[in-house]
């Protein structure tokens, strides 16, 4: 078994006639923290959403642990997967959204318990124990019975991370997890993510938090106009960028 978690080979994505991803090649290794930087509209979210098939790749190959996402390759033909198979693939990939997307009709605890119970078939008692442990881990053991509407943005996002972790994913996708937060709440979410990184979770993080990328990322990728402009370690890409586009972007966000 190779140590590659995600492999993108010449990945293209078009919405109608608009090509948003124009050939993405990259590899995310097991246990790696992989940060995607880039200006608005460069296709970062779209790429992330392709990884769990919220968007379908229109050309190229995208695989997780060697398994194509959303398609099955038979001979040299691709077959679309059934919804059930796609759901099974998504179970192992956690996703955290910019706008949290917690389920507002469920308490924090229920948000974290529901998917393991209803999707993985875990018993209620077990799901509860696990959810309490996860909420404790993100520092919310005192808010388990609160509804999302009663929590701050930072707290909601931490519940959302716990909710994703409850499915025991092998890969976590973060799409600008702190962009919708008031500045003073950004730190608490980044701290949870740093813990997660330290524990060896494979993470792909779209972020504008350059400090976080520099501190935590193993690989930083700069995207612009649907292509990877530059990739490497944080010290290469952030501190010593080679391309003008990277330089001008960094000068704006730093």
């Amino acid at each position: 078994m190779s140590d590659v978690m995600v492999k993108a080979a010449n990945v293209h994505k078009s919405f109608g006639h608009v090509e948003v991803l124009k050939g993405i090649d990259l590899e995310v290794k097991n246990g790696e923290v992989f940060c995607l930087l880039g200006p608005s509209g460069s296709g970062k979210s779209t790429f992330l959403r392709c990884i769990n098939h919220l968007e379908r790749v229109t050309a190229g190959r995208l695989s997780v642990e060697g398994e194509l996402i959303g398609y099955r390759e038979v001979g040299d033909k691709l077959h679309e997967m059934k919804p059930k198979e796609i759901a099974a693939q998504r179970r192992d990939i956690g996703m955290v959204f910019q706008r949290f997307n917690l389920f507002p009709h469920l308490t924090a605890l229920e948000n974290v318990m529901q998917a393991p119970m209803k999707i993985r078939g875990v018993s209620k008692a077990e799901a509860r124990t696990q959810a309490l442990a996860l909420l404790d881990r993100v520092g919310l053991s005192s808010r388990v019975d609160n509804y999302p509407g009663q929590l701050s943005g930072g707290q909601q996002q931490r519940v959302a991370i716990a909710r994703a972790l409850a499915m025991k994913p092998k890969l976590m996708l973060f799409d600008e997890p702190t962009s919708a937060l008031d500045p003073e709440l950004v730190g608490e979410v980044l701290d949870v993510m740093k813990d997660l990184a330290r524990e060896g979770m494979t993470m792909i993080v779209v972020t504008h938090e350059i400090g976080f990328a520099r501190e935590v990322a193993d690989t930083v990728v700069f995207m612009d106009g649907g292509v990877v402009v530059e990739a490497g370690s944080p010290s290469q890409v952030i501190d010593n960028p080679q391309h003008d586009r990277t330089k001008s972007f960094l000068s704006k966000v730093l």
Binding site: L54, F97, R99, L102, F103, A115, I119, A160, R163
Partner: peptide, 17 residues
């Protein structure tokens, strides 16, 4: 909010669930 459906799909919920 369509984000609700997306979040559920991302967790592996089927369409019916």
């Amino acid at each position: 909010d369509p984000g609700q459906t997306e979040a559920a799909h991302a967790l592996g919920y089927s369409g019916a669930k």
